Simulated scan of single mutants.
Amino acid sequence: MKYIGFILFTVLTNAAAQLMLKQGMTVMGPLSFAGVNPLVKVLQIVFSPWIFLGLCTFVISMASHLFVLSKVELSFAYPFLSLAYVAVAVFAYFVFREDLNAWRISGIAFICVGTVLIAQSGREPHEASASSTHEVVSR
């Protein structure tokens, strides 16, 4: 649980990136490649301010995730990324006025319960190996 702050930072930056990408695509409107060079269109998309900021935020999120993976087990860290779904759904409800019905709320509740259960099971790899080594030495 020592690295939970970094894990939550990863989750929040991942969710923030999604929200920025959505804002960017909302500003751009529906995509159409008709009569436009596809490469030019892709560059317009990538370099629009909200999308560019969202992509940069994804890079920060990925760097944070790589740091976390160097410190804790993948089977512990990765499920926390599901909390990004929770954050995105809640913020999308308030920012973009997206629907947050009973089915989505139920799914969010299941994600939260599952994440809490996984969090209760977590230990850093060196803690586990140190306790195993200690048991062998004790015998």
Rank of each mutant, 00 (worst) to 15 (best):
A84Q: 03
L117V: 12
A92P: 09
P38M: 08
Q44W: 08
I51K: 05
A89I: 01
L100D: 12
A84G: 05
V68T: 04
Y93V: 11
L31Q: 01
A84Y: 00
E127L: 14
V42M: 07
K41W: 00
H65G: 09
F96H: 13
F6W: 08
L8D: 11
M25I: 06
L66R: 00
V72W: 10
S70V: 13
L19Q: 07
Y3C: 13
I60P: 02
F6Y: 12
M28A: 01
G29M: 00
V42I: 07
G24V: 11
T10A: 15
A17E: 14
T13W: 10
L117W: 12
Q44V: 01
Y85G: 06
F67C: 08
V68M: 05
L53K: 00
Q120N: 12
A102P: 14
A17C: 06
V88G: 05
W50G: 09
F33H: 11
A119F: 07
G114Q: 04
E98P: 03
A16F: 11
I108V: 06
T57E: 12
S138L: 00
F9C: 08
F47E: 02
L12W: 04
Q23G: 07
V95L: 09
F67A: 04
M20S: 10
N101V: 09
L19N: 04
L39S: 03
N14M: 13
N14L: 13
V46S: 04
V95Y: 10
V136A: 11
S106G: 15
E135S: 00
M1D: 12
A34G: 04
T57F: 02
G114H: 03
A34P: 09
W50R: 07
L83K: 03
S48E: 10
F6C: 08
K41T: 01
T13V: 14
G54K: 09
F9I: 15
G35M: 06
F9G: 09
V116F: 13
A87S: 02
Q120C: 03
A130P: 06
C56D: 12
S131P: 15
W50P: 10
W103V: 14
P79N: 08
F47K: 03
L43Y: 08
V86R: 09
Y85L: 05
S129E: 15
S131V: 15
P38G: 03
L100C: 08
T115V: 14
S121Q: 14
S48F: 05
L74V: 13
I118K: 14
F6G: 01
R123E: 15
V46I: 02
T26A: 11
V86G: 10
S82I: 08
G107N: 03
G29V: 03
C112T: 11
V59S: 13
L66D: 06
A109F: 13
G114R: 12
V116L: 08
F58Q: 07
A34F: 02
T115M: 07
M20C: 12
S121M: 04
A77K: 10
A130D: 05
K71R: 08
Y3G: 05
S64G: 12
I105V: 11
F110N: 15
P49V: 03
V72Q: 04
A16C: 05
L39Q: 05
V88C: 07
L69D: 02
V137F: 04
V11H: 14
L74N: 00
L117A: 14
R97I: 11
